[in-house]
């Protein structure tokens, strides 16, 4: 959550041209082809696919139900509980498998939601400029500087029901600003292009210009922003859950760590309970980061390795 992305102009148009070209050569979407060509990105995509697979097939893959507490409590890894058990006597591996569901769901839902908010605010501000831009930019900057986790904590503390969707909502409305800022500055660059003027003279409407002329030229930025938002959301959920502010009825890697911490995993020597969620979390983060690398390298020619 503490990592900041550099703010610099990116040549998003070039990335889209590559994508359109790639799409022509094959029947697969161009973006996928481009990403697949990059080695780092390919590893990331495969890793992500594994996590998605595990999350989708959790009931099949998990040996037990996540809340089945019929095992001996706080035992280390053994034949029937590969990663040992919790202090409540639940199977750690099963919780881990189900936890992937929560993380991916939060990442996908909150990532999408904050990307949509960021797009709407950023595009409106950047395309319309003037007073609208001044006002929206103020909100973007405000949302950027407000300390996110304390705000999440405050919001979550007031919420009458603590469900997973509340967490997703809280994460989304606190995490859209960075993407909005990037999209705003990119559209400001793109909207002065002559081809936008040409589209106006060709009789295209503003909405069509934004959707058909501008957006396709900044897809890479949207993808990077979405990935960043996913990373932030997954981290945010884990943080909140770890602090005990998550949904107590959902199994997530954050709640596992919280229980491992409070349940004395470190004192009883049930290290697997502590290590496993962290490793799984790191793996998912790595997958998304690797994919982001590929997208970033595409749109920022200076970062291309040569």
């Amino acid at each position: 959550m503490t990592t900041s992305l550099p703010i610099q102009p990116v040549d998003t148009e070039q990335a889209e041209v590559a994508a359109v070209e790639a799409a022509r050569a094959t029947k697969v979407p161009g973006w996928f082809v481009i990403l697949w060509r990059n080695r780092k990105c390919r590893i990331g995509l495969v890793m992500l696919a594994v996590f998605v697979f595990v999350a989708l097939l959790a009931p099949v893959l998990a040996p037990y139900a996540p809340r089945d507490n019929s095992f001996t409590a706080s035992v280390g890894p053994n034949g029937s509980n590969w990663l040992g058990t919790t202090a409540q006597g639940e199977d750690v591996l099963s919780q881990l498998v189900y936890g992937a569901r929560t993380s991916l769901l939060v990442g996908l839902a909150a990532g999408t939601l904050s990307t949509v908010i960021g797009l709407a605010v950023g595009l409106t501000a950047g395309y319309l400029r003037g007073l609208v831009d001044e006002v929206l930019s103020f909100f973007i900057n405000l949302a950027l500087v407000v300390p996110v986790l304390p705000l999440m904590i405050t919001l979550a503390a007031y919420a009458p029901v603590k469900g997973l969707w509340l967490i997703i909502f809280v994460i989304s409305i606190t995490g859209w600003a960075y993407g909005a800022r990037l999209k705003r500055s990119q559209i400001i660059t793109l909207r002065t292009r002559d081809y936008i003027t040409a589209a106006k003279f060709a009789g295209d409407s503003t909405a069509r210009i934004i959707v058909r002329e501008i957006l396709p030229n900044m897809t890479s930025l949207v993808v990077v922003g979405f990935m960043g938002a996913c990373l932030g959301a997954i981290g945010g959920e884990a943080g909140l859950a770890f602090l005990g502010l998550g949904d107590p009825t959902t199994t997530s890697w954050g709640t596992m760590l919280n229980q491992a911490n409070t349940g004395g995993a470190m004192l009883t020597g049930q290290w697997a309970w502590l290590i496993a969620p962290g490793v799984a979390f790191a793996g998912l983060m790595t997958a998304l980061t690797l994919i982001n690398f590929g997208v970033d390298a595409l749109s920022n020619p200076h970062l291309r390795e040569d």
Binding site: M1, T2, V145, P147, L149
Partner: peptide, 20 residues
């Protein structure tokens, strides 16, 4: 220079981390 601006923006997130 962009890092200095970035520092200003990242502070909010950093303080969140301290809570943890």
């Amino acid at each position: 220079l962009p890092n200095v601006t970035g520092f200003a923006i990242a502070l909010g997130g950093i303080l969140g981390g301290t809570v943890l």
